[in-house]
Amino acid sequence: MKNHREGYAMNFELHRDFPESLDEEWTRLLNQAAVHVPFLHPGYLRGWWQTRGGGEWPEAQLALVTARREGELVGVAPLFWTPRAEGGAALMLLGSVEISDYLDVIARPQDLAEFIRGLLAALPGLDLPAWSALDLYNLLDDSPSLALLEAEAAAAGYSAQVERLQHSPFIRLPGDWETYLAGIDKKQRHEIRRKMRRLEESGVPFRWYTADDPDRLAAEVDDFMALMAQDAEKAAFLTPAMRQHLHHTARWALGAGCLHLSFLEIEGHKAAGYFSFDDLNRLWVYNSGMDPAFNAYSPGWVMLGYLLQWANEQGRDEFDFMRGDESYKYKFGAVDRFVMRVRLEC
Rank of each mutant, 00 (worst) to 15 (best):
M1C: 06
N3D: 08
E6V: 07
Y8A: 06
A9I: 05
M10A: 13
M10E: 10
F12S: 01
E13F: 09
E13Y: 04
L14W: 07
R16F: 01
D17N: 14
E20A: 15
S21K: 13
D23N: 15
E25R: 13
W26F: 12
L30W: 08
Q32M: 12
F39L: 04
F39K: 01
W48S: 12
R52E: 03
R52W: 02
G54C: 07
G55W: 05
P58G: 11
P58I: 01
E59G: 01
E59M: 11
V65W: 09
V65P: 02
T66C: 13
G71E: 10
G71L: 12
G75A: 15
V76K: 11
A77P: 11
R84V: 00
A85V: 09
G87I: 06
M92D: 00
E98N: 14
D101E: 03
D101S: 04
D104W: 04
V105E: 00
R108W: 02
R108G: 04
P109E: 05
Q110N: 11
Q110W: 04
D111A: 13
A113H: 12
A113L: 10
F115M: 13
F115P: 05
G118F: 06
L120A: 02
A122H: 06
L123V: 15
P129Q: 07
W131D: 09
Y137N: 03
S143L: 06
P144K: 03
L146C: 09
A151F: 05
A151W: 05
A155H: 08
G157P: 10
Q166C: 11
L173W: 05
P174W: 03
Q188E: 15
R189T: 00
H190T: 13
E191L: 11
R194V: 06
K195A: 04
M196V: 10
M196Q: 15
Y209T: 12
T210F: 12
D215K: 14
R216Q: 15
A218R: 14
A219L: 13
E220F: 09
D222K: 14
M225I: 04
Q230T: 15
A232R: 14
K234E: 13
A236E: 15
A236C: 02
A236W: 04
L238T: 02
P240F: 10
M242W: 05
R243I: 04
A250H: 08
G257S: 08
C258E: 09
S262A: 14
F263R: 04
F263I: 08
E267I: 01
K270T: 01
G273E: 06
F277H: 08
D279H: 14
L280W: 09
N281Y: 09
N287E: 13
G289R: 07
A293L: 13
F294I: 09
P299T: 08
M303T: 04
Q309K: 15
E313R: 14
Q314Y: 07
Q314S: 14
R316M: 14
E318M: 08
D320R: 02
D320T: 02
K329W: 02
A334K: 04
R337G: 01
M340N: 02
R341F: 00
V342H: 00
L344P: 00
C346H: 13
